[in-house]
Amino acid sequence: MASDDLESYILLVLSDANLPTGSFVASAGLESHVAHALFYSEGPRDAMKATLAFVRDSVGTYARSALPFARDAQRVVMDFIAQQETEPSKAIDVLMRLDALYESTALNHVVRRASRSQGVALLTLYAKGFTCPPFLAAPMDGEEDTMGMESRERDERVGALIDALKLRVRREDTYGHLPVCWGVLAGALGLSLDRGSHLHLFLHARGVLSAAIRMNALGPYAAQQLLLHGVRPIVDEEAARAAHLTSGIDLSPSGNALEDDERLPASTWPLGEILAARHDLLHSRIFNS
């Protein structure tokens, strides 16, 4: 795990709105909601309340349905790093099983499409944007310290793991879904499990707010007000509630199905599912999802 200072610094880097993750083309179903006249509930039209309600339902269902995959994927990478494994194939196998399970759980073609493109973007981001450039990685004046050597060796192994996963995605052996790839990235950067999930939900919520601004549903100042005061308690609460969940890849099929189901992913917003899946039917649209 990264030291607190390093972790805070990584959080600054990861929360940069200019990070090329492809999230700017995703609205998480918001555009479809507005087009179907479901953004405002009955009564006076209040853009802030309507946006916050959407964020709440969207973060709630994403936390319960996708976050377990991000957490389990991050655990795989953390174990891979901790156990000093050099051969990534075992970790890749587990990640691919997680990816396949997510594919069969995300029963919505629009969501799956957005998830794959954003997931792959994260792997690329790590490979191209987060690895250390060689001239900064080389030991100074030929002096070699053990700390530097250890961290270089760790970075090389993690880089090999991510390259191997990227290759499998490119060959279409696996999907490269967003929650799985997020977990991989968070693990590779040494974030703690809770930090990783919290940040993932925060970015999901912020993505919705950015989409609301682009759609002209909400002004930029109002969005900041929501981000600072409204989104925080939602993200805190939903990240905490999802902490005991599991994707289910390690569950035995002979276990008690009803008991196991209490800890497994589930969608909590059926209306959101339908509207997200109707995105491609919108006559005019500015987002891909």
């Binding site: 179907h36 006249a37 029963l107 073609h109 039917l281 006559h283």
Partner: peptide, 22 residues
């Protein structure tokens, strides 16, 4: 499903449905 084209709707539709391949 393919034939549906949604222009801005004025009030929520009575029935809303979606279809996705599995």
């Amino acid at each position: 499903f393919q034939a549906i084209s949604v222009f801005q709707v004025r009030a929520p539709l009575d029935v809303l449905w979606s279809l996705s391949p599995v």
